[in-house]
Design a protein around this nucleic acid. Structure first.
Lengths: 350, 350
DNA sequence: TTTATTTACGCAATCGTTCCCGGTAACGAT
DNA sequence: ATCGTTACCGGGAACGATTGCGTAAATAAA
């Protein structure tokens, strides 16, 4: 059971040296003679010595681990982001502790407390769709915890942030719908206070306005659980379908909402794209195999994860408090597929 | 930057007590008077004291963290399993360090070494599709590291294991194909030495044999990267399509392979299910929205993760070396959808 | 030869916590 | 008055590693 590891003390005893000498020999200090070094190094090698990371952490007052909080890992965008995060973290000798908020503020708070109690060196977070109270994060930040936000950021907290150009992505997607003949474009969105919702709806509204279409505020359905609960999406779509002016297309602001809409529409036997166009943010690599293949706005999730981690490590390893924070904005990609191209119905209108 | 936490020493100094007394008061020891306890507890509460987990780990020689190795987290089966793992681990005060092999033996080895160097208390692993050298795992196991295998297990190492009845799942799926009129059933499988491949192909072969069909060994295509590289699947499917006896259905043995086959077949404009039936193991919740909706064999991933973690914690926290190991086998679920039902073509034949 | 300098190593403190030893009162029993 | 208990608390070692400082011996400079 015990799994007794070799310690520096064991080596010292075996070789008749002091622990300090062994430690210094292993770190290749100049004060140790080449012969002693060789002796120690060979012994360590042969007996497979590895420094105890916990003892090191205690001594150096750092755990070499970073905390990550996302909505859920079973979500392509986040799992891809995590891939990026891990690749950088591991290369720098950090390990990653992942936790999921499942779009719940309470769970996010619990996870945050858990992570900090595990003494992480830094935090990468994309807040839950429910989160509009940032006091805990603020407190953490003020206490000196290095934090990097990505995707769903918090404007009020000044630190590094990594996002995509949500406004532009949404603008392009909405414009695309309009160009394809759709005129009554609804939106199924996350909670209104969420950064991505604000930005994406901003692009959506601007595109409509720029094309001379009115912005139908009643046609924006907010899902406070971000699609985690399908019934919420169902309700939203239902209301849209029974509105006075039934929409002919939907713009969904996140992965779960996009596929959620498709699910509901198919259950209602509503033809996409003929009766209803559908475009949304998504990173699922199955979207092209769906029926119909989905037009999506894709985020460079992996790169975002990499970038966020690099920024975080920079923060962690900086000697003096960082004051100069930056917000990195990457580009989205609009991938046009069948769900927004209703040739027969709209070709003449366009 | 520093994030100075309150220590037991600080409390001792502030209250004019010794560290031992404070420690004991916090742990509610009988040797401390109620008044002192109250004093300490209140001070700790008010100043938000939290024991330093790293110091505890060093003292107790346990990190309260467990390592998890899977092929990739951006895979529904694994992300669902991880959800199960985390739910149990967190409830027991353990944190989870996840790493991905990406179906590569080398990466798996590196991750394993990394995890053990981070002094994890135990390991939950589903080996990569490339792994057929278990010496490192064996060594780890012999040194006393608690290990639980799930999904892709290693027969030669005696410890707890959590799997599904792969044989039965494959048998049912294949039988289902036969019942629906398919007669020339090929298989796209993982590497032959992988436990799940062996078991699933076993069920596949048995079903064919039991229905008086010959087992076409040439029609089993092995993908050593488990679908991580699409070209590999493409090659396999290609060979099947150009075989003397072209198959009329494919049984795929894992998530990536199942969707990979669909991807290739669609690219080749082969009609599923009419020209080619398709069934496979998968846990993606998008399968019903695919074109065509996929018939799948689903695993209780979340439960498997929960179970594996409970077994691991049992192993970790057991006082004496455990000798009685068990293999838990859960049931799969066959979900029939459009990809295996070619009414027009086969109804008459069946 | 004496002194200064270098070389090579050990001692002990430190990180935060627990816990094995003690130790000191107070009190009752002898 | 002496002893044994009990209740309560502190000292200090330990967990594994690093590191400032001290110091012996060896060498160089005077």
């Amino acid at each position: 059971m015990k799994f007794e590891a070799l310690t520096i003390k064991d080596i010292a005893k075996a070789l008749g040296l002091s622990t300090s000498t062994v430690s210094r020999a292993l770190r290749d200090s100049y004060e140790i003679s080449p012969e002693t070094k060789k002796l120690v190094l060979e012994y360590a090698q042969k007996n497979n010595y590895h420094p105890n990371p916990i003892a090191l952490s205690l001594k150096e007052r750092r755990s070499r681990s970073i905390g990550v909080v996302v909505a859920e890992i079973a979500n392509s965008f986040f799992s891809q982001s995590i891939n990026g995060i891990e690749s950088i973290a591991y290369n720098n000798g950090y390990n990653v502790i992942i936790s999921q908020s499942r779009e719940s503020f309470d769970r996010e708070l619990i996870n945050l407390q858990y992570l900090t109690s595990r003494s992480i060196d830094g935090l990468i977070i994309s807040v839950s769709t429910e989160t509009n109270d940032f006091s805990y994060l603020k407190e953490l930040h003020e206490k000196g915890m290095p934090i990097v936000f990505f995707d769903r950021i918090v404007d009020e907290i000044e630190t590094h942030k990594v996002i995509v150009d949500n406004y532009k992505g949404a603008y392009e997607a909405t414009s695309h719908l309009i160009k394809n003949g759709y005129r009554h474009i609804a939106s199924v969105a996350n909670a209104a206070y969420l950064s991505i919702a604000k930005e994406r709806l901003g692009g959506y509204r601007a595109a409509l306005a720029d094309h001379g279409l009115e912005v139908p505020e009643a046609m924006i359905k907010y899902c406070h659980h971000g699609g985690m609960i399908l019934s919420e999406v169902e309700e939203g779509v239902n209301e849209l379908l029974h509105a006075d002016q039934k929409p002919d297309a939907i713009f969904a602001t996140s992965d779960k909402l996009t596929t959620g809409c498709l699910r509901i529409l198919k259950a209602r036997k509503i033809n996409v794209p003929k009766e209803m166009g559908l475009v949304g943010f998504s990173n699922t690599d199955l979207t092209e195999l769906l029926d119909p293949p989905l037009t999506i706005i894709k985020q460079p999730a992996f790169e975002m994860g990499e970038l966020a981690t690099n920024l975080l490590l920079q923060l962690i390893e900086s000697k003096r408090p960082v004051k100069d924070f930056e917000t990195k904005t990457l580009a989205t990609e609009l991938i046009v597929r069948g769900s927004t191209v209703a040739k027969n119905k709209f070709k003449s209108l366009a």
